[in-house]
Structure formats: structure tokens, C-alpha cells
Simulated scan of single mutants.
Amino acid sequence: MDNIITFEDFTKVDIRVGTIVDVDDFPEAIKPAYKLKIDFGSLGIKTSSAQITTLYKKEDLLNRQILAVVNFPTKQIANVMSQCLVLGAVDQSDVILLHPESQVKNGTAVS
């Protein structure tokens, strides 16, 4: 493995649990995606986009808990300012969202 990081590198990544509270189509994206608003509790509601239209319908995503990195700098994706990176496992070209096994408080840190 060529991409070895230190434990100190890992501790800089802030992964939190959030609940998707709004899902919209994102036709401006180059690849099919949704615009998401995610509630991270005391961290507030953050916006992101996710290329997950193949496996997930909008109504299936609403109120679903997910994991996301919340301490990346804001990044513009088409006309959306993405404030977090939703985490998923990539199976061929499909993204399968990562989520807690049980309901937890929004904003809970993952360690």
C-alpha cells in the first residue's frame, strides 16, 4: 500500500453522523447527482452533492442517516457550494452510502 498515513493524519479527519433533511435533483452536475441538505446537529445544516442516483431514489434518502467528512474546505460543484463529503463504498461504479447501524444523535463524531 503506497498511501500510508500516520494516526495524527487520521485524527485530522472529522467524520460525523448527519440526517438528510432535503434532497433535490442536480441537473447542472456533469454526472447524475442529487443536492443534499444534511443536519449535523450542533454543527448545523450543510449542503453537499452526491452521485448516488443509480441506487437511491430521493424519497429513500430523506431522513436517512449518513456519514460525512465535515472539515474539508467548501468546494464549488457546478452551482452548489459543497460543505461536506458524504461517504460511501464504491462497488464498480455505484456508491453505497455508509451509515450507522442504529439511530444516533446528529453530529456524533466517528472515531
Rank of each mutant, 00 (worst) to 15 (best):
Y34L: 06
L36V: 10
N71T: 15
L43P: 12
Y34S: 02
S42Y: 11
L55G: 03
V69R: 07
K57Y: 00
Y56S: 10
P73G: 07
A50V: 04
F72N: 11
I66H: 05
T53D: 04
L36S: 05
A33H: 03
I77A: 11
T47N: 05
D60M: 15
I30D: 13
I30A: 03
Y34F: 14
S49F: 02
Y56L: 10
K31R: 10
L55N: 06
V70E: 02
K35M: 14
N63V: 00
T74G: 10
A50Y: 01
L43W: 14
K57Q: 09
P73E: 07
I52R: 09
V69I: 14
K46M: 08
T74M: 09
K35E: 05
I66D: 06
G41E: 00
G41K: 06
F40Y: 12
K37Y: 08
I66C: 07
R64Y: 09
F72W: 02
L62R: 03
L43V: 11
F72Q: 05
I38T: 09
F40E: 02
K46F: 09
L67N: 07
S42F: 11
K35V: 01
D60L: 04
N71W: 03
I45T: 09
K37H: 04
F72M: 11
K46E: 01
A50M: 05
N71D: 13
I38E: 10
F72P: 04
V70L: 02
Y56W: 02
L61Q: 05
T53G: 04
K75G: 01
E59L: 05
S48W: 03
L55F: 00
L55I: 07
S42I: 03
I52P: 08
I66N: 08
I30Y: 14
G44L: 14
A29M: 06
A29F: 09
K75L: 00
K46T: 12
K57S: 11
Q65Y: 06
V69S: 01
L43M: 13
S48F: 00
A50E: 00
Q65L: 04
Q51E: 12
D39M: 13
